[in-house]
Design a binder for these strands. Structure first.
Lengths: 235, 235
DNA sequence: ATTTCCATGATTGAGTTCCGATCGGTGACG
DNA sequence: CGTCACCGATCGGAACTCAATCATGGAAAT
């Protein structure tokens, strides 16, 4: 499994729940237009006040068009969530390629920076934290012990094992899963008290993840020179 | 501000949004019955598929009764969320009284254990993690620097400062806020892959919080003998 | 190469169903 | 017996459908 396999597979914008795969050109534009509208409306009126009529109007489409592509109101939100995740993954992949991190920590730091940046710029990004996750399709099930691996964790696991030789396996996946959860929670908390993102929470998320990472992989990577900041009694 | 003030204040079951304060006895039973029904329905059909009709039927009440107490569908869910939080707080207060923790870590550990236990036994407890938090009334605003303090963090801050002399202030509140977010995220993740709670995530939540706590308050409390487990390369 | 043509995909929006929310009437409490 | 609690038919509006209409892009004709 290579990096390009992971990131360049299924670039398809459509969420898991599209009723009809778009065939003509214009319809894929419609589809993304619908999600663009959904994202804006979500930011405006919130997660549970959104109506299909609002989405349709914003997208310059009719109600019927919404239902051509999505079975119901909730499916639209799930599709938005998946697109946002997909975009985040692509962004992380790009950033890693550009930054060319020299340590696992720098890699994770890329992911954090991208998360913060998208929270600030990508409409509807909030949905990542607030949406109900229970119906998400399980992307992969680790055969060994049954840990369900999320997209992000699986992606980062590949990068970390390929670039830094961390052994790919359930432990790595599990730890990345934990890191993803922690970072998402603390960062989202930071954006709850401040729409531009409270820097204290962002800094703390970085600190927590770097310590976590160092705790598991700090010593064995000493030759690479881990640049992970030390947990200090700040302030 | 004493412990009893914090925990025994506002035992009122009603959420913030009740239309009419119940006066007769039976109506308070109705109110909690409605929330009981809501909790069960939330567990059954999920957060965004719930309807007021379902709630009414489950509670053995009519639609009108639901709207007598709550202005709209969303308010019912918020009320459930607040009741769940309230019950959790009381549970933590009780457990701390019973366990009589000797260290900050033992105190936090109480809170984690209570969280896990309530996830297993309290219907609708999932809502703590999944519900949209953006419309929650801000319980308190730290005057110094504007950190909004959640119920749980504020409560634990009082306990830790009263029992162990940690200095009560924005730093402590902030760090507890971070801990609450991290624990809730990782634990909820554990209940996502396993309805009874995946023990690996639970253990990891404990480990992460104990390390976090030790990082800030480990040394200065050596005389109490912190029992916080060390972050080990487990497995 | 250009135009015509048309099968099929895409869109529409009035119409249907269902759910959120109301309110006047009835029953129960104290 | 006044007031509080409850009910459920009813209304308004949002979710969702479907038959009719429009647009597309490729094939056939020239």
């Amino acid at each position: 499994m290579s990096l390009s396999d992971l990131f360049e597979g299924d670039i398809v914008e459509a969420g898991a729940q599209v009723r009809i795969e778009p065939i003509q050109q214009r319809s894929t534009a419609r589809l993304s237009g619908l999600l663009d509208a959904t994202a804006i409306v979500v930011d405006e009126v919130g997660f549970d006040r959104i109506t299909t009529a609002m989405v349709a109007e914003r997208a310059g489409a009719s109600i019927g068009t919404v239902y051509r592509y999505y079975p119901d109101r909730v499916a639209v939100l799930h599709a938005l969530r998946e697109r946002v995740i997909q975009r985040y993954r692509l962004r992380v992949a790009r950033d890693i390629k550009l930054a060319d991190p020299k340590t696992p920590w720098e890699t994770i730091d890329c992911a954090i920076t991208a998360f913060v940046d998208m929270y600030r710029t990508e409409p509807g990004f909030r949905i990542m934290h607030f949406a109900d996750r229970e119906r998400l399709p399980i992307s992969a099930v680790s055969p060994a012990d049954g840990i369900e691996v999320g997209f992000l964790a699986g992606q980062l696991a590949v990068v970390l094992s390929e670039r830094f030789g961390l052994s790919y396996g359930p432990e790595l996946l599990f730890r990345l899963e934990v890191m993803v959860e922690m970072a998402a929670a603390v960062l989202s908390r930071g954006f709850q008290s401040d729409v531009m993102g409270d820097e204290r929470y962002i800094a703390e998320a970085r600190r927590v993840l770097s310590v976590y990472l160092a705790g598991y992989y700090g010593e064995e990577l000493e030759q690479h020179g881990t640049a992970a900041p030390v947990l200090e009694s700040a302030e």
